[in-house]
């Protein structure tokens, strides 16, 4: 295969993110992974919802579907099932993925489509200027919680494991090599690969700075990656900054299940419309 230049993947639209936004690291890692995997731009589809993070597909020279808020995963799955040859990557923010679209996260995980799902988690709704998100810590003051956040944050890693995701990892924009490494592994994984990417918002989140996050972050220890109980135990660490791959198993994807159904149904050759019409004869 021909060697590809990283420039090939750069879209005509330039990023509209603030300087130092964590999402740049995700975009750069994607460029690198595409180059290292020698993916042809026409074989890549990036799917997103709405938010600062969801702008990402516009910055890549590939096919892209920038849809509506929260519906990222079912849209991506529809594309993948329609053409399983494509490399389909869904990208979203924590609001898109864990707030308005959370139901789809659980249901997509259990279907195990061969999608890569990258959630750029800045613990707030940046696009709408800083309100609380499903991963914001309790008591934090945001424009929509002037007296402090009242509820518990969700735990996306544990939720993904329990919902049937077959590849579950956490990365951090402040550690781009690890992010690239995990992305490469996710691309190689045949199934639903979810990476929660801690991706600081430098404009609206004064608490989760690169400095504080880097200080808190550490790598998950080595253990057998198919050990669900151990993975869940680690996922529940209070600090929520353990980075790396938590869980990986192999399970048939929904595309494989569909292919099996279709092949079995076509064992005697493809069906004819005329035969179907006959079924309604008086």
């Amino acid at each position: 295969m021909t060697k590809r230049s990283i420039l090939e993947y750069r879209g005509e639209v330039s990023p509209v993110w603030c300087s130092f936004c964590g999402d740049y690291a995700v975009l750069n890692s994607l460029y690198q992974v595409f180059q290292r995997k020698k993916l042809a731009p026409e074989e890549i589809v990036l799917v997103s919802g709405i938010g600062c993070s969801s702008r990402l597909p516009h910055f890549v020279n590939a096919y892209g579907f920038h849809g509506v808020h929260g519906r990222t995963l079912p849209t991506a799955m529809g594309i993948k099932l329609a053409n399983p040859q494509l490399t389909v990557i869904a990208v979203a923010g924590d609001g898109d993925g864990f707030g308005i679209g959370l139901g789809h996260f659980i249901h997509t995980a259990r279907k195990n489509p061969d999608l890569k799902y990258l959630v750029m988690d800045n613990s707030l709704y940046a696009q709408t200027k800083g309100q609380v998100s499903p991963t914001t810590c309790p008591h934090r003051v945001t424009p929509s919680t002037p007296y402090g956040v009242m509820e518990e944050p969700i735990n996306p890693i544990a939720l993904a494991i329990l919902s049937g995701a077959t590849f579950v990892a956490r990365a951090y924009s402040g550690k781009p090599e690890l992010l690239t490494e995990l992305l490469l592994q996710a691309i190689d994984h045949p199934g639903f690969a979810f990476i929660q990417i801690i991706s600081p918002c430098v404009t609206f989140n004064p608490t989760d700075t690169y400095r504080s996050l880097t200080q808190k972050s550490y790598l998950v220890s080595d253990y057998p990656l198919e050990d669900r109980v151990k993975a869940l135990e680690l996922a529940q660490a209070e600090d929520r900054m353990a980075l790396g791959l938590f869980y990986r198993v192999r399970r048939p994807t929904i595309e494989e299940a569909v292919r099996e159904i279709v092949e079995a149904a076509q064992r005697e050759g493809p069906a004819e419309l005329a035969g179907l019409v006959e079924e309604f004869n008086v």
């Binding site: 849809g67 079912p74 529809g78 249901h107």
Partner: peptide
Amino acid sequence: KLPPFGGIVLQMEDELAALAAVLGASFAG
């Protein structure tokens, strides 16, 4: 009836997911 013709039906988690998946498939041709 769709599988013998190479197609598929998916029951989704709600109508939002249903139309989103259909739009994805449409985008893919």
